[in-house]
């Protein structure tokens, strides 16, 4: 019974959390810049509106356009069910660390192809940048996750992220560093501020927006929803790392975990909007330096995991 309840809760989080989180980022950013900003649920309204619109398709595009959308959204929803991004999500047998990483790679593979599809230079340069960033970010994400997996001696992320009682306090730095590595990497992966500006409409500099330039109507709606879902999943994953660090210091009850794991996503969204208010977009050639910090955090986490793992 309680499992069904938890699945229902997970499912509703999956439906509404993405739009809400995007809304929070935009709203906070607007307030920080002394604007009123769009309503909190604007993203959801936009999605619904786009779903009902008709679409335009480039004459050059091939079947990749449709395949990208359906594969993107179906993999992303599967990922949301597999990844332990909420502490109350029931475990499945397939939430393996390496499987998740390569499912993300599959999404990216088709996204890059679809932006090369219409033969537009904007999309293609966005794709080229996306490929570059993912080359740099993928090691950071996999190392951060394997650091925490190494401390649990299993690559099944549900087991890794299960909140166990009596975690020693010495585990806290590991979780903190891994969480920081994941958060910094997900900023890059999600094309957020220091690397790419999600609000810009100067095609020459865009990454994420340029890749979606040729999509419209329901196609665009699905892609937007998928990328919002990716945002909450990645934030949720790094948020879970921070929660574990907290759990090492102050073991909270699992009921509190439900609230905490949702609110930490909101907290990270607020942090994102803060970053986007104070910082500027980096010059493209300097972007790898930002990615390097994510990798540093992951490497340090791994080092901590190895060093403490050998002793135990």
């Amino acid at each position: 019974m309680s499992t069904i309840l938890l699945w229902l809760l997970t499912f509703s989080c999956l439906l509404f959390l993405p739009s809400l989180t995007i809304g929070i980022i935009r709203k906070t950013k607007a307030r920080l810049q002394n604007r009123v900003g769009a309503p909190l649920w604007q993203h959801l309204f936009d999605t619904i509106k786009l779903l009902r619109k008709s679409e335009t398709v480039s004459e050059n595009s091939s079947w990749i356009l449709r395949v990208n959308t359906v594969i993107n959204i179906s993999i992303m929803i599967t990922l949301a069910f597999l990844t332990p991004w909420l502490s109350f999500k029931p475990a499945t047998s397939a939430d393996d660390l390496f499987l998740l990483i390569y499912l993300f790679a599959a999404i990216r593979f088709f996204a890059i192809l679809s932006s090369l599809d219409p033969g537009s230079a904007f999309g293609a340069f966005g794709a080229s940048r996306e490929a570059t960033l993912s080359v740099l970010v993928e090691p950071a994400i996999i190392l951060a996750l394997s650091a925490v997996a190494l401390s649990a001696h299993t690559s099944n992320l549900s087991l890794v992220f299960a909140l166990t009682a009596n975690t020693p306090i010495s585990q806290a730095p590991l979780w903190l560093l891994a969480g920081a590595g994941l958060f910094l990497s997900s900023l890059v992966e999600l094309s957020r501020m220091p690397v790419d500006d999600p609000t810009t409409h100067l095609e020459l500099t865009m990454v994420h927006e340029a890749m979606m330039l040729e999509n419209s109507g329901p196609n665009l709606a699905l892609l937007e929803f998928s990328s919002a879902l990716r945002l909450v999943v990645l934030y949720g994953l790094s948020g879970q790392c921070f929660l574990h660090a907290l759990h090492c210091i102050w073991p909270f009850a699992s009921a509190a975990g439900i609230l905490l794991s949702i609110s930490i996503i909101f907290a990270l969204a607020v942090v994102t909007s803060l970053i986007e208010t104070v910082s500027v977009r980096l010059k493209w050639t300097r972007a790898p330096e930002f990615v390097a910090y994510g990798l540093t955090m992951s490497l340090l986490a791994l080092l901590v995991a190895l060093v403490t793992g050998v002793s135990s």
């Binding site: 990615v291 390097a292 910090y293 540093t296 490497l299 340090l300 080092l303 060093v307 403490t308 050998v310």
Partner: peptide, 30 residues
């Protein structure tokens, strides 16, 4: 490049752990 030198210094951190634990002779514990 600056970011790379950061990663190299992490590798050096690992090396110094290796050195230190053989230096102390005391143990493999961190």
């Amino acid at each position: 490049p600056v970011p790379l030198s950061m990663h190299v210094s992490i590798a050096l951190f690992a090396t110094s752990y290796y050195l230190a634990s053989s230096l102390d002779g005391a143990a493999g514990t961190f």
